[in-house]
């Protein structure tokens, strides 16, 4: 039985960017851009150190919704703007809110903030088949 979604439903999901997370993600995804895995490269690029791959930050947003609906195959769409890099030791809290259920889709707006309360994603939306 598919989990039902209703307007107003909310959920949270927390992920930490531990020291090795960009390297683990690089190994799993193939994204070995030096700004993600090399502290010197991150500094040289003016980023203050290595930054997590944006697509991992996106994946965590998708994961927050997948865990809530308990079915990866129901995800229909994701859209994000990367507004701030995720750095080593950042803890990102994802807060999802169902804002619309219509035409076979539930729209979930996802806020993603670091431990300082700064948005790392803006305008993040995940759509779920219902």
């Amino acid at each position: 039985m598919a989990k039902q979604l209703s307007v107003g439903d909310t959920f949270t999901h927390v992920r930490e960017c531990d020291k090795y997370r960009p390297i683990y993600y690089a190994a799993a995804s193939g994204d070995f851009n030096p700004i993600h895995i090399d502290a010197d490269a991150g500094k040289a690029a003016g980023l203050g150190g290595p930054i997590l791959q944006g697509l991992c930050t996106l994946s965590w947003a998708v994961e927050s919704v997948v865990n809530h609906v308990e079915d990866a195959t129901r995800i229909a769409k994701v859209k994000v703007r990367f507004s701030r890099p995720v750095m080593i030791d950042d803890t990102i809290t994802y807060t999802g809110k169902v804002t619309e259920v219509a035409n076979g889709r539930a729209v979930v707006e996802v806020a993603a903030k670091n431990q300082k309360g700064e948005d790392v994603l803006k305008g993040a939306v995940v759509e779920v088949r219902v």
């Binding site: 700004i35 490269a41 040289a44 690029a45 769409k77 994701v78 859209k79 994000v80 990367f82």
Partner: peptide
């Protein structure tokens, strides 16, 4: 080194 990911959308 000067490239960052700005936005991403998947269907």
């Amino acid at each position: 080194l000067m490239l960052v990911h700005g936005e991403q959308e998947y269907e």
